[in-house]
Write a protein that binds this DNA or RNA. Structure first.
Lengths: 218, 218
DNA sequence: AAGTTGAGAGGACAGTTGTTCACTGACTTC
DNA sequence: GAAGTCAGTGAACAACTGTCCTCTCAACTT
């Protein structure tokens, strides 16, 4: 463990970089990115303000890095859902369970994404939109292989996938602040509602062929 | 028009108050409320920083006032939709049209609500949540009177209403920044997608009685 | 006509902000 | 083991922030 690539140098740098990300994420629980201060972040880490510039040009760049981190973990969650091959009803339960677990394990990430998705920093909004787009694409690909999607137009599968993705992100966000502000009882209501909404959507999906896709083609 | 209640005094005060609200709303196009400065707002209005305190305790209070203003106009839009008694398909088209018009006429309000719904100021989040709750209640009441809802449990009507409300708010937000960043073409895609998503939901609604509400009661 | 009120002005305050610059000294490379 | 690299330091900068205080003077009250 002496002269291997990576070195003590780079390792230490990565460590402070991660510390900056963690500190920022922590501070973002009670404010939004556009009001976060550079000095505020470095103060928490215990490092000089100027050290910040060794890692990021500005807070927007740090924000984008946070997006990658946050949606990287979300990626795992989505794959876990898509891997299942259950019947519709069990699939929904599994999905909700995964969302619940994710919110419990990465609350700060969930909050960050939900908040900055429509937040005040353009670069971060774009980064999130791009990642969620990739998720939607993955989901669409998975949906397409299911028997229920036989005969569906690609654009319709995609619109369904986007509906699902948006619903999951929204549910995660709602679950998070329900738990914080209304306790376990309020969280339970959110879960109940999300489950039934997914059920209704899945019901609409099953009957799409009958009349849904027929009208207003172009 | 001399000694009537209201007076020149109060009128002038209301005027600057409104000017503060307008200035803030304008500044919020490119940042979020938690990063907005008190001086920044008064500077735009052309008034001394201290004058701010005559109208609001702090920016959070101004934010709550903005919520009332923004969702007041949204209220009009929702009623317009609910008043219609068309068939499902025409109803969807009308709904989308009203959303489009609203986004065009009140872009700043739409952006504000979308951004601060999950934003960094607790009081504002709560105010928005409260208003949207009232909307959902109104929508639920309207849905209940429709024949399709015969035999539905109240909680299910409510969960559907919330799904609709959330979808409309989301669509409005997406439509707004699609138009700004991708032009009319991107906006068209958003509208197309939203229409089909509403259609799918409405389809699920029509078949809810068959199997949807049956499972997992309690 | 005299007195009260209150929206807004203007100065001053202590803190904070992002960015610059020259610097140190542990690690890496030859 | 000498030379070089570069993550992090610390002082200084002008610009800005929210809040306090006293003041003014037009609109209102009686």
């Amino acid at each position: 463990m002496s002269h291997s690539v990576g070195g003590v140098r780079q390792a230490q740098k990565r460590k402070t970089r991660q510390a900056l990300l963690d500190a920022a994420l922590g501070l973002l629980e009670e404010q939004s990115l556009s009001s976060l201060g550079l000095r505020e972040v470095t103060r928490v880490v215990g490092v000089a303000p100027t050290a910040f510039y060794r890692h990021f040009r500005d807070l927007g760049e740090l924000g984008v890095a946070l997006v990658e981190e946050a949606l990287g973990s979300l990626h795992v969650m989505v794959r876990a859902i898509l891997a299942e091959q259950d019947a519709a009803e069990e699939r929904i339960d599994r999905t909700i369970a995964v969302v619940e677990r994710h919110v419990r394990e990465h609350p700060a990430h969930v909050r960050f994404v939900a908040r900055e998705r429509r937040g005040g920093v353009r670069a971060v909004r774009h980064a999130i939109a791009g990642e969620l787009d990739r998720f939607a694409e993955e989901v669409a690909a998975a949906l397409k292989t299911q028997p229920v999607s036989a005969g569906w137009r690609d654009e319709d599968v995609r619109m369904l996938a986007e509906l699902y993705v948006d619903r999951l992100v929204t549910t995660a966000a709602e679950l998070l602040d329900a738990r914080e502000e209304g306790g376990e009882e309020a969280a339970g209501r959110v879960v109940w509602r999300a489950r039934r909404q997914l059920r209704l959507i899945s019901l609409g999906r099953r009957h799409w062929g009958e009349e849904g896709r027929a009208s207003h083609e172009g």
